[in-house]
């Protein structure tokens, strides 16, 4: 770790973020039943977390803001996680459902956070939302995206839900 990274460690809760993320990833991998078929490269995960905080730090400096909103936390976090691919497959017999394991885990981690932020029941589901999950997965696997496009996606989700709830409240 260079001097700059050590400085970031004094400013941001980098270790706590790493710890929470590792806990979330492991929980998901255990529940998917594949924890013994993959490896979490903690150096790459650490790199993703540091890259995230470096990116956010630059953004805050440029925008002259003391903190960022959760849209950015989720979108920038997802971007750097997917960029660094910390989960590696070590068992070649793993089912092909899990070939894009980083993309899949990213979704499994991001969705409950978005639900929690909106106060949506975690058990909620409908076909339209399943289609949205499929589209997100496809985008992560095959399409180009940026931190900013992911932020727009997340904010769109928040906005759509808020508008709908607002409509129901007005009725």
């Amino acid at each position: 770790m260079g001097t700059e990274t050590k400085d970031l460690g004094n400013i941001y809760p980098i270790e706590e973020r790493f710890s929470n993320l590792l806990e979330q990833i492991q929980e998901v991998l255990v529940k998917m039943g594949i924890i013994d078929q993959v490896l979490i490269d903690t150096d790459l995960l650490g790199r993703a977390v540091v890259d995230y905080f470096e990116d956010i730090d630059r953004l805050k400096d440029f925008e002259n803001i003391p903190r960022v909103n959760v849209d950015k936390i989720y979108s920038y976090g997802a971007f750097w996680f997917l960029r660094r691919h910390p989960i590696q497959i070590i068992d070649k017999t793993i089912d092909d459902r899990f070939w894009y394991i980083n993309e899949k885990v990213c979704i499994a981690i991001m969705i409950p956070k978005m639900f929690a932020e909106m106060g949506i029941d975690l058990k909620a589901e409908n076909q339209r939302f399943k289609d949205f999950l499929e589209l997100m997965y496809y985008n992560f696997k095959y399409r180009l995206y940026t931190q900013q496009s992911l932020e727009l996606m997340i904010e769109s989700f928040f906005c759509g839900y808020s508008v709908k709830v607002g409509e129901e409240a007005d009725e």
Binding site: K31, A108, P112
Partner: peptide, 30 residues
């Protein structure tokens, strides 16, 4: 921008949400 102290206010909530989410049908779908 809407400020939030994520580490203090929301990170624990989100970690618990991820864990709870693994018990849902949508997680099985994913």
């Amino acid at each position: 921008n809407t400020e939030v102290n994520y580490a203090q206010e929301k990170e624990l909530r989100d970690t618990e949400a991820v864990k709870a989410y693994t018990q849902t049908e949508l997680f099985e779908y994913i």
